[in-house]
Simulated scan of single mutants.
Amino acid sequence: MKRYIGTLAVAAMLSCTIPACTPESSTKELGPLPTASFTATPLTTNPNRVVVSSTTKGGFIWNWTISDGTTAKGEFDTLHFSKAGEYTVQLTVFTNGGYATTAQKITIANDAPTKDLLNTTDWTILNTGGTQTTITNTNGTINFSNTGNTNGAIYQMVMVKAHTPYTVAANIKGAGATNSWLEVYCDTIAPVQGKDYGGTKYIAMNTWSGCGSIPFDGNIAEIGCDGGGKGKNGYMEFSKADTVWVVIKGGSSGGTLGTGGMTLSNIQFLEEQ
C-alpha cells in the first residue's frame, strides 16, 4: 500500500467572487521506511576515540545516545571514552519515510593514558570578599569548613591544548551540609583577590539543587548535581590552546558546610596523551 501526504484548499463559500478562484491539491509519496545502520571505527592513533558514521540513506536528522550518558548529533561524530569497558551506542535516524533506531556495543580495552596537570602544593587561596571560608591544604587534601555564612576559593593555573580531551575529578566527602555549595570551575577568566569568582561553573555540590545535604563520599564529577558539566563525568575539551584556571569555591548562605566541612582529595585535571 502506498502512503501519501495530501493537501487540499477549497473556497470557504460555495460561490467565489474572486476571478479564477479554484481549489488546489497536491500529493507527495513518502519514501520507504528507513533501516538504521552505522559504522564505528576506533582511531588508529587513539583507540579511546571512536568515529561513528551513519550509513542510512536519505537521513536528515541523526541522534546518538551513548550508555555513559553522553549524546551527539550529526551524520558522523568522534566519541571519546576515557575508561575501559563496554559501551552501547544507539543511533536514531530520520528520513522522509520515517525514523529507525539501531545500536551497537563498543569495547574499549584500556583506560586512555593521561597526565595530571595539577600540583598538590600549588593551590592559591582566593579571598572572594566578605567572611572567608576556612580552607586548609594537607598534602593535597583540601578541606572547606565554616560555622556560618562564608565564601572562599582556591585556584591553580594550567595550560590546555586545542581539541584535546581533559577530565576533572576529585573525591569529595562530607557529613551533610545546609544551604551550601562547593563548586569547580575550569575557565579562562583569571581570579582576582578580593572579588567573587564569576567564571562558568563546571560541576558542583549544591544543597539547593539536591546534593550535599546528606552524607556523601564520591567523585564530584559523578555525584555533583549542578553546573554545565553535569552528566559529562568530568570530560571537557577546549576550542583553542589557552590558559585555564581551575577554581574550587565553597561556602554557605544561611547554613553551614556541615560537621567537619567538605573534604576534597585526589584532585586531578587530566590531559589525555
Rank of each mutant, 00 (worst) to 15 (best):
N171R: 12
T138C: 05
T114Y: 08
L79S: 02
Y202M: 14
K240A: 12
V160K: 04
S209F: 04
V158E: 06
T243C: 04
T45N: 13
T56Y: 03
C225K: 07
I125A: 03
T27W: 07
S15A: 04
N139G: 12
L257P: 15
I18R: 08
R3E: 12
A36Y: 01
K249M: 11
G74K: 02
G194Q: 00
N146D: 14
A241I: 02
Q273P: 05
V51C: 01
K2T: 14
T65E: 14
K57E: 15
T167R: 10
A221N: 12
G234A: 08
S37E: 09
T178D: 10
I18K: 09
G59W: 09
G148M: 02
K173W: 03
A109D: 03
T136N: 05
N149W: 03
G176H: 09
T124D: 01
M236T: 05
I203C: 04
F38L: 05
N110T: 11
V246Q: 08
M205T: 06
I189H: 01
D116K: 03
N63S: 15
G212T: 08
G254Y: 01
L91N: 05
T88Y: 04
L8R: 11
N127S: 08
D116N: 14
G229H: 00
F76M: 08
D111M: 07
D217I: 09
L33F: 13
G74L: 04
A170D: 06
D187F: 05
N143T: 15
T147H: 03
A204H: 02
S53P: 04
Y4E: 14
V160G: 12
T147D: 10
G255C: 08
G260E: 12
E24V: 14
G212H: 07
A20C: 14
T120G: 06
A103M: 09
A36M: 02
K240T: 09
T128N: 00
R3L: 11
G140A: 11
T131C: 00
G258C: 07
Y4F: 14
W245I: 06
P113H: 03
T65M: 15
T45P: 10
L270P: 14
V51S: 11
I61G: 04
M236N: 01
C186S: 12
V192W: 04
G194A: 02
A162D: 13
V160I: 10
K195G: 01
I66R: 08
N146E: 03
L257H: 08
G31T: 05
V10N: 12
P34F: 12
T92W: 01
T120I: 13
G176P: 13
W64R: 03
Y235H: 09
Q156D: 03
I267E: 01
T138R: 10
I125L: 05
S53Y: 00
Q273R: 08
T17W: 09
Q104N: 06
N48T: 10
N266Q: 10
T101F: 11
G174I: 07
T39M: 01
F238M: 05
G255R: 00
L14M: 14
G31A: 09
T167K: 07
Y185Q: 01
L182D: 11
Y155E: 05
S82K: 06
I66D: 14
I61H: 06
T164P: 13
M205A: 09
L126R: 02
I125V: 14
T256Q: 04
I267D: 01
F60K: 06
V192K: 08
L270G: 13
Y202A: 11
A162G: 13
N127Y: 00
V52Q: 12
L14T: 13
I214E: 10
F60M: 09
N63H: 11
L43K: 15
D196A: 13
N63R: 10
